[in-house]
Structures are given as C-alpha cells and as structure tokens.
C-alpha cells in the first residue's frame, strides 16, 4: 500500500507544548515538510525565539540555536556570514520581532541579509499570559489593555510587512494566514519562496503568518480562525508586498 500522506521526518515524534488551536505547530510542520521535500535537512539552520516558539528546536530535527528576545536576525546574520550557502531562518513572534527586536529586523532587511524570517503574528504576547503586542488590534482586549487597545493611550497596530517593503534590501515580503486549508497551503508556498530567495541570494525575505491564539483571544479554535478572516485581515491584508525586489502592493 502506498502512503499518500505522512508526518514529515524532520518533525520529531514528540508531543508539543502548544495550546489546542495554536498556529505555531502548523507553521513548524510546514517548515518540516519543505525541508523533507527539498532534502535540505543537512543545510538548514534555524533560530528559535524567546516566546511561545522557544522550544521549536524540540520539534524540528535540524541544527538550531536560541537567540535572546528580539535578537534572532542578529544571530542569524552571524551564522549566515559563516555559512553563506546554508539556509538560515529565524522563527519569531510579534513581541520578539516587532517590539524588542525592531532594530534588528529592520537592519537585517536593510542589509539585504540573505536570511528568511518566519514571523508568526498572533497579535498578543502568549508566553507571558496575554499582554498587548505591537500588532494587537484596536479595541482588542489583552491583560495590559483590559478595556481594549485605545489608540490614544496605546497607539496603533504595527504593520511589519508594509514597513519592511519600503526597504531596498527587502527582497520577498508576504503576509499569509492559517485561517483555512487554502491559506495554510499558501503559507507553505510563501515560505518556499522565501527559502528560494536566499538560495538564489536575492536578499532578505520575510513571511508574516497571521496565526491564532485561542487561549488569549479567549475564543474557541474555530472562532479564532473566523477572527483572523473577519478582523485581523482588515488591519493586516494578505498578499505579497515585495516579490524579488519588485513592489507588489
């Protein structure tokens, strides 16, 4: 009998620590699938962030390093400069990338650093119990905006793709979501394009993935997916913002 579908070998057979309905497991599975399909396990080096995905190295059977909160693009730079022909990616959340690590991400993009960044945006700080993230939507309740995000006191949601797309060094910038099987497949294609961007040495690539956090959104997993489609994409429209240097949107 022929197996039509099986768990990727690069995904280790261990239970994850992710909450039910969380998006991180999906994205990490996509990464494992791509690594298997392209046979690049021996060439790929990943960076785990500080945040919910800190233990990503427990699930992916590849060489990985931790980085301090916000610093994966700097650490990835240090690795990529030693192994320019390897595939180096960082996996970062919204607090890591868009708050504390904003300088590192902008300058990695601006330097056209040949790395791929997977940016899981769930509009909340998960690991520290649901505080305001730079990407938290207006009126969204978090533990540090109990009455909802008010632009007068908490400012506005930060659009990372739109910001980075203005930089000359950013080659491939796209936003996808995990809200439906179709969108999951598109996410996989976007990550592949990101990897291809660095393999062909075309510069910096980033794929922002709108990812559900049912626990701190205080919703069911199904409602979370609806929330992405109906609410999140209004602030964060899906699409390709930069395609190998060409501005798309």
């Amino acid at each position: 009998m022929q197996a039509l579908y099986r768990a990727p070998e690069t995904l280790l057979r261990v239970p994850t620590h992710y909450c039910p309905g969380c998006g991180h497991g999906i994205v990490q599975r996509l990464l494992a699938e791509i690594i298997d399909e392209w046979g690049i396990r021996g060439k790929t080096i990943g960076l785990a962030p500080v945040g919910c995905a800190v233990l990503a190295y427990n699930y992916l059977d590849i060489d990985m390093s931790e980085a301090a909160h916000g610093r994966p693009p700097a650490v990835a730079t240090g690795i990529k400069r030693v192994y320019p022909d390897n595939i180096v990616f960082s996996y970062q959340g919204d607090g890591d990338l868009a708050a504390i690590g904003m300088a590192e991400i902008i300058h990695a993009a601006s330097r056209a650093e040949n790395i791929t960044v997977i940016f899981a945006n769930n509009a909340i700080y998960g690991m520290t119990n649901g505080q305001l993230a730079p990407t938290t939507l207006l009126n969204q309740r978090t533990t540090t905006t109990p009455e909802g995000r008010n632009p007068l006191t908490h400012g506005y949601p930060l659009r990372v793709c739109e910001l980075l797309a203005t930089l000359d060094g950013a080659s491939f910038i796209a936003r996808t979501s995990l809200s439906s099987p179709k969108n999951v497949l598109q996410t996989k294609e976007a990550i592949k394009k990101g990897f291809k961007t660095q393999i062909e040495k075309k510069g910096f690539s980033l794929i922002e993935v709108l990812s559900p956090c049912p626990v701190y959104w205080r919703m069911s997993p199904v409602d979370s997916l609806k929330f992405i489609e109906e609410k999140m994409t209004q602030t964060y429209p899906l699409g390709v913002f930069k395609d190998w240097g060409k501005k798309e949107l």
Partner: peptide
C-alpha cells in the same frame, strides 16, 4: 546589542 548577538551567531556556527 546587535554586534554581540552577531558574534553569538558566528560563535554558534563554530567560528
């Protein structure tokens, strides 16, 4: 901050 973490990256890569 970025400099020390770039150094961290190259050190992790064994250089």
């Amino acid at each position: 901050i970025a400099a020390i973490y770039m150094a961290y990256g190259s050190a992790a890569a064994g250089a």
